[in-house]
Design a protein around this nucleic acid. Structure first.
Length: 588
RNA sequence: GGGGUCGUAGUUCAGUUGGUUAGAACGCUGCCCUGUCACGGCAGAGGCCGCGGGUUCGAGUCCCGUCGACCCCGCCA
């Protein structure tokens, strides 16, 4: 039977007591982590989020009997005196290990069922079980540390942006649907039957309007919603550190954002070097096959098409004749790989979408290549050109330049992981710049924004905006850490005319543009300062700094890849009366 | 929408070529134990082998379907 807290007021957390507290009276409130019943002595480990303190129960028969009835995860209050432990009984693994509390009072504030997994244990538990009992998982030290780190990073960022003159402004959660980009989450309006709000995919237009409104520098830790497939680094709802600045240049944004990330890294005791490296989109794609390259390891993609223009190996020669290329990279130390290991790499390439993968390496008496038709002289020349040494393996693929690099970029990542080529504890931050403004949408026969329709073209490319849209580069930039896109942004269009031109290129008629963005286009006409900004993925930043490979580990209540909250069982059906009130009829 | 990995006790896992009564560790329950902290000792309980169908004399094991978790592609202005 549960007892009342009564007059028990906490004097110390379970992580607080030290040798300097000896002889003090202490009241601890927390969970029983473990009971060690030795008969005439009972030890209790008391736990809260601050730590663990050992309590000793001895001599008092009533108290002993009560202590023996305690079980893991009972919530108890202990009142007693702090005692120094004998030197031989000190527990050096605990910060509180020099002392223990000799219990005079034990109050059972609540009992607990046996939990499905042990809270104070490092043993792995399936994510399914952890998500169902998230309140228990959150009690475990690993997740508690992540939540604490998230808090500290959030606080550091708020402090930093405040110091830089940013104003924290809230924007609506119930807003207007703008069907470009990701699928919207819609919220039916009861007052306006048949009409819907949308949850924001980002506060993009609102933050730009805040610049028009004269807020000058804006920051918001903003929840965003996108109804798209979930991944280790993507949830339906996620948190952006959203910023926007009037009179911004890319350099100014870089400086501000680098400072913010430096502040975040300080929370894990890491000093990052600034300014970050810069890389054009074209180089990133060509050399790393990705717009978010992981620079912790090399395996750089090289173009060796020149060696195959007249090759007797038809597949490569024809690829070049059709305007394609031959590219590949060196896998250091894989030269001695067994046939099975090499086949495995070829198989990985197929999974990445390669039609085929040719490999080559040096042997004791020359060179070896998986396509004999290439011939030894060409093979040797390619190995030389790529800088492949005795112990290395070279892999080659052909096709359209972009597709080949992308495929090799994927292979690069899986090979690096599999062969353990990625150094731990390295932080490779970079800016990817000079993105194209548009990409051609073959299905719809029109241009799509690569970033979003409010991104400003580079001034020197402006003359080609109407004549050659594909060649126009954007004033957009992504910040990348170890192969994760941490954030992205741009300098925005701030004049009505350029904005209208871009909408037309995107296939939006003036009427459609007015319907969707009319309020914004009108706002642009009332004296809009040049402005720009960026949004950082807070979940990704925290996950990275926590050393986690999934953002679910830094989100208190995440959803599964099937978009289900296993704890609350959302989504769920609702009462017909609710639907009727909203004038909604379901099909199923 | 597509590809892959996994699903056996509360938990994490093992389970041979298809063969008698499905095991281990931790956890849990009871008893013993005055310095434990991965306490120890003794005894015990605990299984729809995800679910449905099929093949077979016989299925945890083979086949088909389905559900769920995770990873990847597509998707994510």
């Amino acid at each position: 039977m549960a007892e009342q807290l009564g007059s028990l007021a906490r004097t110390h957390t379970c992580g607080a007591l030290r040798a300097s507290d000896v002889d003090a009276r202490a009241v601890l409130l927390g969970w029983v982590q473990k009971v060690r019943d030795l008969g005439q002595i009972v030890f209790l480990d008391m736990r809260d989020r601050h730590g663990i303190t050992q309590v000793i129960v001895q001599d008092d028969a009533d108290l002993l009997e009560k202590a023996k009835r305690l079980r893991s995860e009972f919530v108890v209050g202990i009142e007693g005196v702090v005692e120094r432990r004998d030197p031989e009984t000190v527990n050096t693994k605990l910060p509180t290990g020099e002392v223990e509390v000799r219990a005079a009072t034990i109050r059972v504030l609540n009992e607990a069922k046996t939990p499905p997994f042990i809270i104070g244990d490092e043993q792995a538990v399936s994510e399914e079980t952890r998500l169902k009992y998230r309140y228990l998982d959150l009690r475990r030290p690993a997740l508690q540390q992540n939540i604490v780190l998230r808090h500290r990073i959030t606080m550091a960022l708020r402090k930093y942006f405040d110091e830089q003159g940013f104003l924290d402004v809230e924007t609506p959660i119930l807003t207007k649907s703008t069907p470009e980009g990701a699928r919207d989450f819609l919220v039916p309006s009861r007052v306006h039957p048949g009409e819907f709000y949308a949850l924001p995919q980002s506060p993009q237009l609102f933050k730009q309007i805040l610049m028009i409104a004269g807020m000058d520098r804006y920051v918001q830790i903003a929840r965003c919603f996108r109804d798209e497939a979930l991944r280790a680094d993507r949830q339906l709802e996620f948190t952006q550190v959203d910023i926007e600045m009037s009179y911004a240049t890319p350099e100014l944004v870089f400086e501000i954002v680098e400072g913010a990330l430096a502040a975040a890294f300080t929370e894990i005791g890491v000093t990052i070097s600034r300014p970050f490296r810069r890389m054009g989109y074209a180089e990133a794609m060509a050399v790393y096959g990705s717009d978010k390259p992981d620079l912790r390891f090399d395996l750089k993609i090289q173009d060796v098409g020149a060696h195959f223009a007249e090759s007797p190996f038809g597949i490569f020669r024809e690829a070049i004749e059709h305007g394609g290329t031959v590219r590949g990279f060196v896998i250091p130390g894989a030269g001695g790989a067994s046939r099975r290991e090499v086949d495995e790499i070829v198989e990985l390439a197929k999974q990445a979408g390669a039609a085929g993968l040719i490999w080559a390496r040096r042997t004791a008496d020359g060179v070896q290549v998986s396509a004999k038709a290439i011939g030894e002289p060409t093979t040797a020349a390619v190995l030389d050109a790529m800088g492949a040494g005795a112990g290395d393996l070279v892999v080659l693929a052909c096709g359209a330049a972009d597709a080949t690099s992308k495929m090799l970029g994927q292979l690069r990542l899986t090979v690096a992981k599999k062969r353990d080529l990625i150094p731990a504890d390295r932080w490779e931050l970079l800016w990817v710049t000079e993105f194209p403004l548009f990409e051609w949408n073959a299905d719809q026969q029109r241009w799509d924004s690569l970033h979003h329709p409010f991104t400003s073209p580079r001034e020197e490319d402006l003359p080609r905006l109407a004549s050659d849209p594909g060649s126009v580069r954007a004033r957009a930039y992504d910040v990348v850490l170890n192969g994760w896109e941490l954030g992205g942004g741009s300098i925005r269009i701030h004049d009505r005319e350029t904005q209208a031109t871009v909408f037309r290129l995107l296939g939006l008629s003036d009427e459609q543009a007015k319907l969707r963005f009319g309020f914004f286009l009108e706002a642009l006409e009332y004296g809009t300062p040049p402005h720009g900004g960026l949004a950082l993925g807070l979940d990704r930043i925290v996950a990275m700094l926590a050393g986690e490979s999934s953002i679910r580990e830094v989100i208190p209540f995440p959803k599964t890849t099937q978009a289900v909250d296993l704890m609350s069982d959302a989504p769920s059906t609702v009462d017909v009366a609710q639907l009727r009130e909203l004038r909604i009829r379901t099909e199923a």
